[in-house]
């Protein structure tokens, strides 16, 4: 339990710092930035209390917002995916989730991709619709969501591959 706490705290701090100091300065093609910090929510222990992950999601989002001066858009998106996570887990891993024995190191690679993709797309849709905050610019919302999602998903998969091997 103590180990779990320290691993998650370190992950929290490292992901926030990497996000605000590196990934938000990439600006690929002028405006495309990845947001892989949501991997914290994605790989938070499944068995834990649902209220804790929602609270931590809010904390994570609000800290990112503080760094980026973006109001509460990251907090809203994070709280939403933290709340919706059980549904997405059920959809991507099926029966395995119902028996409560998912270990992210050992699951099927395909369903892992589905899981990350769903979380990222959901997060980005909320993030960019709140950021742009105008129905007349819906094309811009879709465009940003699409490109940033692709970038985030690729990066998240690379990060999970690198770090899942180290832990074994």
């Amino acid at each position: 339990m103590n180990n779990l706490l320290s691993v998650n705290s370190v992950r929290f701090i490292v992901l926030v710092l990497i996000q605000v100091l590196i990934f938000n300065n990439i600006n690929f093609l002028g405006y495309i930035n990845p947001y892989p910090y949501i991997l914290f929510i994605a790989f938070f222990p499944v068995k834990s209390n649902r209220a804790i992950i929602i609270l931590l999601g809010f904390l994570l989002g609000i800290i990112i917002d503080m760094f980026l001066d973006s109001g509460g858009i990251n907090a809203a998106a994070c709280v939403f995916i933290a709340y919706a996570r059980p549904l997405i887990l059920k959809f991507s891993f099926g029966t395995m989730y119902e028996h409560h024995n998912i270990k992210f190191g050992a699951v099927d690679f395909g369903s892992k991709i589905t899981y990350i993709t769903l979380l990222v797309v959901l997060h980005h849709i909320i993030l960019f619709s709140l950021e742009i905050f105008s129905l007349s610019k819906i094309i811009l919302v879709i465009q940003k969501t699409l490109f940033s999602s692709i970038f985030t998903i690729l990066l998240s998969i690379i990060i999970t591959i690198i770090f899942s091997r180290k832990s074994k």
Binding site: A51, I54, F58, I62, G71, G72, I73, A76, F80, L130
Partner: peptide, 25 residues
């Protein structure tokens, strides 16, 4: 819990969209 935190986030977002209003974040 989700509803309360989500509303707080939306409140911060709306504040940040109006000039000189965002207070804490």
């Amino acid at each position: 819990l989700f509803f309360v935190l989500f509303s707080i986030s939306i409140l911060f977002t709306i504040q940040s969209h109006s000039y000189h209003k965002s207070k804490f974040i």
